[in-house]
Design a protein around this nucleic acid. Structure first.
Lengths: 252, 252
DNA sequence: GATGCTATTGAGTGTGCGACCAATAAGCAA
DNA sequence: TTGCTTATTGGTCGCACACTCAATAGCATC
């Protein structure tokens, strides 16, 4: 009996296989970093041979870019849903900041740092990063615009307000890989403060919001518990080698 | 006669060799990225064999960390000198923001993104990043504190103000590898705006400052010093031409 | 049950990386 | 000049990576 290795081939439709490759790549990207999205690593996750990944993604760079896009899109939808049937703009914005402060947000911050750095060397990824930044701007701009229309927010330029908020969120998230324990309260609160200022809200308006039950549970994500198959975060040593600027010389 | 390759060994003192290794590594880190700081790459720059780099840095990770530290320290000194004999705190702060906006700052932003990401996997580098962040906080805090003492700035917590400014600078710099051409003016100006708000300065106080010639030329580099304008009336004595701090805008 | 399409494998290529170590020679001191 | 210390070399090893391609086998169809 083949105890350890799986001998039997499992043949899937190209669509299904491709989907599971992308899904796995996105998960690895989010939890362990884009450098860990390698042909071997993803193949191992799916118990297939690396050549198969190559078959679906002839250029590994495309898989990395796709992994980022999928992961970032999923996170954006979880943090700032496009459809907001369960509350007011103020409530959804308050929810966004509440989630942004949590530790779960560190993975997303790390992913963005990762992608922004890696896009220095990888043009395909760079385009995706720009695309996702635009999507974030749009999503938040829409929320703000709706809030203005409803009379909850006040600003002349919803987009400028949105970008300013996101710049602060980025600035705070930049330290996701470092220690942030001794930050003054004013700093921890910067994103909220910026939003309150730019949207004409009083201090505390976004932190004292009471959220309806539907907005408390994280959306899109799997349930609160995922019993089995939790990858051990401790032993993920990251990319084995520095690796990765495969040819940084031809920066073109 | 050796045509292409250098055959003759050049034997240097350990101190000199080590210094030039670190210097080269810092330059490569700043211009091409920390991933390019490899034994082979640095050895090639210095026309020596990779084993020699290993001899001075038995662990390559230490060299990468050292390269970052040296590069970051050098840039910090250039942007925010510890000794400020040529102007007021307001002038040095204005100079800092003027330099932060320039394209030369992109290299530094890239380096920081690079280091913050890589420190996810490399504990030695992570410590250095924390160290350099602290140094930046301290440097800017000192500047602000001096400004408060001189009556140029007004804030209850110089350090919190400094960190908030740096968070915004980080947030803006996060996009150093992406396109930033269509940013609203309010966003481009965010760092300055934050400083003016947190330090009790009127809008424009930090952008209308006239800098003495000594502060125009980048420090450390021997640049052609501005020939004219050496007779700046408001020299190093006090607040340049901005009058007194105005009321904090609205946050209070 | 046989057939054919093609998803999947296995094997191999070449690159770059860090780490290791015995042999070598540069340059100082005797 | 000779000798000695040690900075420096040259070579090797093992590893991880992307990429290529002929051979194989799963499985839907007949």
């Amino acid at each position: 009996m083949p105890s350890s290795v799986q001998r039997k081939r499992i043949r899937k439709t190209p669509e299904a296989r491709r989907a599971e490759i992308v899904e796995t790549a996105a998960r690895v990207a989010l939890t362990e970093g884009l450098e860990c999205v390698t042909l071997r690593r993803i193949a191992e996750e799916l118990a297939v041979r690396p050549g198969l990944i190559s078959h679906y993604f002839p250029s590994a760079e495309d898989l990395v870019a796709e992994a980022f896009s999928v992961a970032a899109t999923g996170e954006l939808d979880a943090l700032l849903p496009a459809d907001r049937p369960h509350g007011s703009p103020t409530q959804y914005l308050a929810r966004y900041f509440a989630l942004s402060g949590g530790e779960a947000y560190d993975d997303i911050s790390r992913l963005w740092i990762n992608a922004r750095h890696l896009s220095r060397y990888r043009p395909v990824l760079r385009d995706r990063v720009a695309e996702q930044e635009l999507a974030s701007d749009d999503r938040l701009s829409d929320l703000i615009r709706e809030g203005v229309e409803r009379g909850e927010f006040r600003t002349d330029d919803p987009r400028a307000a949105a970008i300013q908020i996101l710049v602060v969120v980025d600035g705070l998230g930049a330290h996701a890989n470092t220690d942030r324990s001794d930050r003054p309260e004013a700093v921890t609160r910067m994103a909220v403060t910026t939003a309150e200022r730019e949207l004409g809200l009083r201090y505390g308006a976004l932190t004292e919001v009471r959220l309806p039950a539907e907005l408390v549970a994280p959306t899109g994500q799997a349930g609160p518990t995922d019993p089995a198959e939790s990858t051990d975060p401790a032993d993920s040593t990251g990319p084995a080698q520095l690796a990765e600027p495969t040819e940084p010389t031809n920066s073109a």
